[in-house]
Amino acid sequence: METPELVTKLMEHARLALELARLPVVRLRFEQGRNPEGIRHAHALFTRPHARYKMFRNKTMGIALIDLTAFGGHPGGYLHTVRRSGHAGPQSRKAAARGYQLRRIDRNAHIDEIHAIHTSCEQRQGRPMDQSYRVKRSAYEDASHVECHGVFDATGRLVAYCSMGRYGNFAATDQLMGYKNQDGIMYLLLLSIVCRLIEEREVDYFMYDTFLGAQPGLRDFKRRVGFRPYRARYELV
C-alpha cells in the first residue's frame, strides 16, 4: 500500500512534470570553433543528469533565459521591461548613483578581492557556502570563450563579479557573486551585462542557470531581472 508521503511525492513530481512540459522550447547551440575542448566540456556539463531531478538533464528544464533578440539591439526596450517590474531598474540606478561602476576584468588581477567576496558570508540563499568557494585560488585559467565583469565601488574596490561563457548562440553565467548590501550592486551588474549583450547582437540568449531547484529568493531575483523559464534543446556543432 502506498503511504501518504509517497502519494504526495508522486503528485508533486507529476505537477512539476506538467509545468515543465508547458514551458516554451528554445534551441541553444554549442559552437566548437570557439574553443573545441572547452565547448565540448561545457556541453557535457549542461547535458549530464540533474543532481536532484535525475530524470532531467542538468540544464535543460526550467532554465533561466532572457531572449535578447526581442529588443532589436536596443537596450532601452529591455530597461523599460525591468522598470515595469518595479524593482530591478530602480535598484540598478541606485547603485550607479552611489558611485558603483562596471568594467571587464581579468580575475587574476583581483584574486584577493574575489576571495574576500567568497568568504564574506557563511550562507547564501539559505544554504551554506560551498566549501570550494572558501579555498583561495592561486590562479584562474579562463578559456578564450570566457570573460568576467566586475562592479567596483567609489573607492575602486571590487564588490561583485560575474564570469560568463559565450558558447554559441547564447551566453551563460558561470560564477556570479557579490557582497550582501542594500545598494543594488547585483542588479547593476546583471542589467549592465544584458544591455551590453543586446547592443552587441552577437548572441541570442543570456542564461543564468535554472529556476529548477533554485530557492524562492533567487527565483524572484531572476524574474525581476527579466529571466523567464524555458526548456532547452542543445546541439553541438
Rank of each mutant, 00 (worst) to 15 (best):
A17E: 13
I63N: 04
K136G: 08
L23V: 15
A171W: 01
K136M: 15
A109R: 15
H80E: 09
G89I: 00
P36V: 06
G213N: 05
R57C: 10
R124C: 14
Y53Q: 13
V203C: 03
G99C: 03
Y208E: 04
F227I: 03
A232Q: 07
R201M: 03
H13A: 13
A214V: 01
Q91G: 02
R104Q: 15
I111L: 11
C121P: 01
E141H: 15
H50D: 11
M164C: 06
Q91V: 00
L16P: 04
I111N: 02
G184K: 04
T119N: 05
P90C: 12
A42N: 13
N35P: 03
Q123V: 07
L212M: 09
S85Q: 12
I63Q: 11
G62F: 04
I39R: 14
L188K: 05
G126F: 06
G217C: 02
Y179T: 12
L65N: 06
H145V: 07
I117W: 13
R107F: 02
F227C: 04
V151Y: 13
Y161G: 03
T60V: 08
A51Q: 07
F46G: 00
K9V: 02
T81W: 14
V25E: 13
G73E: 14
Q182L: 12
E37C: 02
G156F: 03
I114Q: 15
L212F: 08
R134P: 04
L191G: 05
A97N: 10
L79C: 13
R233K: 10
H13C: 10
A51W: 09
Y133E: 05
M61I: 01
A172L: 02
L190G: 00
M207P: 00
Y161M: 09
L45P: 00
R29P: 00
S85V: 04
R157V: 00
M164D: 01
A97S: 09
R196C: 06
R137G: 07
E200T: 02
M129Q: 08
F56W: 09
T173L: 11
R223L: 00
R83N: 13
R29D: 13
G77S: 07
A88C: 07
D204M: 09
R127C: 02
G156H: 07
F206W: 15
G72N: 14
K9D: 06
Y78Q: 15
Q91H: 07
A51G: 03
Y234Q: 07
G184W: 10
L16M: 10
G33C: 08
Y205I: 11
A154T: 09
F152D: 05
C162D: 09
A143C: 06
A171C: 13
C195K: 14
V26H: 12
L28S: 08
V225Y: 00
I105P: 08
C162W: 03
A172W: 01
P24C: 02
